[in-house]
Design a binder for these strands. Structure first.
Lengths: 344, 344
DNA sequence: CTGAAAGCGCTTACAG
DNA sequence: CTGAAAGCGCTTACAG
């Protein structure tokens, strides 16, 4: 069915499109009678301005694009929840794309969003991405972009993350305080900023507590699945039967580790304590329940959108934009996978 | 930074916009030299057609809108994964909105999508929605729309679901075959089509196996959270201490039931068997592991987009569109929460 | 108070 | 082979 246009209204009323437009937009220089008849007819015909025409005219789409590595992932879907809600509140709609942690897809999708003329872009960088010229290009074009969760310091733009290093430090400290002396780390890929930061936090927590950092206790997961956790927990345990703690990059990886230890009848937390990261629902469902870092996904998404929209608005007004790196606070949720009352 | 337009190219080359457009689009009636210089300059300037202008011209946006009740939910995010991937493959981008199971929000968001001029809409109907005039209006406007997962038979449009009734029948049959005689059902809201169908499947499985249907064994969950499951498992057990099986509307609800039974040292599956629905990751992580119905979310999303795009294309070509109700097959994953080898 | 004109960036039927 | 004109649906500076 054909949508009603200004032209239709103008023709019916025998006046010009200009006048109809003005009446609808509340311009003063329209006679009360004309205004009234226009408004009434528009109402009756259920006139809705054509957003596409407005977009062309206004050079904006009131749409923002988001690229996440994977939508079926509690943390990212939480971010998306926050993003969509906050964007909607500000009159923006959200287009979502998944890179699958692939740099090639990420590049292609970024271009699709630019071609689509979105007003701004939010991105959590794929693990496989190791150079940022595609993002640099967006910045050069002055398209507002905000990085979240997986970011890089190499780009001049706003970022929203938690303090991954500090969060990891605190998580490992909990393990140490509970009595662990030999803590393995199932880490994430080298290309992922948060994996790098969490590894650093792990190292510095050890060193701050008089435990020598032993690189052979660090195992690199390719992905973040339960199987990655199982696999590497097995490797870690077989190569170092005396480990008494495992710090995992992700709750899913931790769930895999727990599954392995349970199968092998290795007692958690008595023999080995396990620490996860994210506080996803599985951490309270798994047995023993998983101690983990609470990572505020929804708030991260909300914060990222706010920064982005601020930039979009400033850009429109030709005001200078500043860049921020917002770091959201985290806290640790201690559950049964770590010994309590360690120091009697 | 200003984007390059046809006008820019035309001015630099001293030719008309028309000719530039034709050269770029490979029209025959352009001299080889002109074509070449246009192509080269466009390449150098990295010219990209303005999608918004094309949208206005072509009366299409190559965008589809999706409304789901909740994105942070394994099943729906799986659907979205399928939707986004399949849409992308066909050159469509996807705008996502969450109704939060609210009819009011659903109505508002549907209107936003229409105003946005999306080419088509995918929707999983909110639990609170009990009349469909807002969707009926979309259909009258001839905007392609496909319902998925939570649908209604009252609307003349395509639908993609599983056969919830049959899936529930089979799930309850597994409980019965394992020896259960008194099976409670933690069901979903009355407004949700899948909850209604699953309840029907539950009833008919009982009756087909000579077990009288007892409405007092059915408990209505308001939501789908762990707590809903805990709460109602407790109610069910306290009011009927002799139940030996529980069929849950959702894996999360089942997880709550398991948590309650574990806390109360009620042995699963020896005293009570538990059956979930969806086969989300938690079903293999929880202990005892959860028997459940595997619900192919990603495929459902993919199927729904395919149907939708087919309609969009046919509409464009003014061909008649037909409506289908695609029902995806499911199968049951039996795990430790149900007794095996029941009939020795 | 009203409306013709120009413009957002593109396409295409048509005239030359 | 080239380009002026009309049009997608809207807005707004300007003339009357």
């Amino acid at each position: 069915m054909k949508e009603v246009t200004l032209k239709d209204i103008a023709q019916i009323l025998g006046i010009s499109v200009t006048t109809v437009s003005k009446a609808l937009k509340g311009y003063k220089d329209v006679s009360p009678e004309t205004r009234k008849s226009v408004l009434m007819l528009a109402e009756n015909l259920n006139y809705k301005p054509n957003a596409v025409a407005l977009n062309l005219k206004n050079q904006e789409t009131r749409t923002i694009g988001v690229i996440v590595p994977e939508i079926v992932h509690n943390f990212f879907s939480s971010c998306l929840h926050g993003i969509i809600a906050e964007a909607e509140k500000n009159g923006y709609l959200v287009i979502i794309l998944q890179s699958g942690e692939s740099d090639l897809l990420e590049q292609k999708q970024l271009e699709m969003l630019v071609d689509k003329r979105v007003d701004g872009i939010l991105i959590a960088i794929a693990d496989a991405t190791d150079e940022y010229s595609h993002i640099q290009r967006i910045i050069k074009k002055e398209i507002p972009i905000v990085l979240f969760d997986k970011v890089t310091e190499q780009l001049p733009c706003s970022k929203v993350t938690i303090d991954d290093k500090k969060a990891a430090y605190n998580a490992v400290k909990v393990l140490i305080d509970s009595g662990c002396k030999k803590i393995a780390h199932l880490r994430g890929p080298l290309g992922a900023s948060n994996a790098v930061d969490r590894h650093e936090g792990y190292v510095s927590a050890l060193e701050a507590h008089g435990i020598a950092y032993d690189p052979s206790l660090v195992y690199m997961c390719d992905g973040y699945s339960i199987n990655d956790g199982k696999q590497h927990a097995e490797d870690a345990y077989k190569e170092n039967p005396d480990i008494d703690g495992v710090f995992c990059i992700t709750d899913m990886v931790a769930a895999g580790a727990i599954a392995y230890f349970n199968e092998e009848k290795i007692s958690i937390p008595d023999q080995i304590s396990v620490m996860g990261f994210s506080n996803s629902p599985i951490s309270s469902i798994i047995r023993p329940s998983l101690s983990t870092v609470d990572q505020p996904g929804r708030q991260m998404g909300k914060e990222a959108v706010s920064l982005l929209i601020e930039e979009i608005v400033k850009l429109k007004k030709k005001e200078p934009v500043e860049h921020y790196h917002v770091q959201l606070p985290t806290n640790i949720v201690v559950r049964d996978s770590v010994k309590s009352n360690p120091r009697p």
